[in-house]
């Protein structure tokens, strides 16, 4: 067995390496990278479903979505063309008015281009451990406010395009108590990312 002093030295050396990483993840960069990762995961899912991506608001080849909640149309985003249905847009960090009139900014929003109706929302939670139930409650609040409850037109849409189901992406472990909420409000969690 390795001596305690030697093992503590290994931990010390590791922390020195991490010191070099700190500036790279500072100023919420790690969270923004995680949001980008989730955004492009969703783009990939939609492409695999046969949707054709079209880049919007790209200048000099630079694709720069919002990092803070703002007018969704004032930064880069991806639109999808589909001859069988209406075109729709996927935004990162856009701001949208909720049912109550209050502005909200779910991390990723899928919206119909013509009607402006929000089809789905996706939240990104970069956490360790087990995801706190309060994030599920907050997510359900978003679903209500953005009118993406699992009935009527939304239900029909989700039947032919399952990617429209709202989702929480997280680096944490899904909360074991969230199952009933998930079933009731028809969303899912992709965890341990």
């Amino acid at each position: 067995m390795i001596a305690k002093r030697q093992r503590l030295q290994y931990v010390n050396n590791f922390l020195k390496v991490l010191g070099g990483l700190r500036p790279l993840v500072a100023s919420s960069r790690d969270e923004l990278v995680f949001e980008f990762f989730c955004y492009f995961r969703k783009v990939d899912e939609l492409i695999k479903r046969g949707k054709t991506p079209l880049l919007k608001n790209v200048h000099n080849r630079i694709f720069a979505p919002h990092s803070k909640p703002s007018n969704p149309l004032s930064a880069s985003y991806i639109s999808f063309k589909d001859v069988r249905g209406a075109p729709f847009d996927l935004f990162l960090n856009g701001q949208f008015e909720g049912r109550s009139g209050v502005d909200h900014s779910p991390d990723i929003v899928l919206r119909e281009t013509k009607s402006g109706k929000i089809l789905s929302i996706y939240e990104c939670k970069k956490h360790s451990g087990t995801l706190d139930l309060r994030y599920y409650r907050e997510f359900i609040g978003y679903l209500q406010e953005m009118k993406v409850q699992p009935w009527g037109r939304n239900k029909t849409f989700r039947n032919f395009l399952p990617e429209l189901r709202p989702c929480i992406y997280t680096s944490a472990k899904a909360n074991p108590s969230s199952g009933l909420m998930r079933d009731q409000y028809d969303f899912y969690t992709i965890d341990r990312l």
């Binding site: 500072a26 980008f36 492409i47 054709t52 991506p53 880049l55 720069a64």
Partner: peptide
């Protein structure tokens, strides 16, 4: 994504921290 004619590469991505 780039293979779907959108021509987007990691070199083209920028965000504000």
């Amino acid at each position: 994504i780039s293979s779907e004619n959108s021509d987007l590469f990691i070199e083209d991505l920028i965000f504000k921290d």
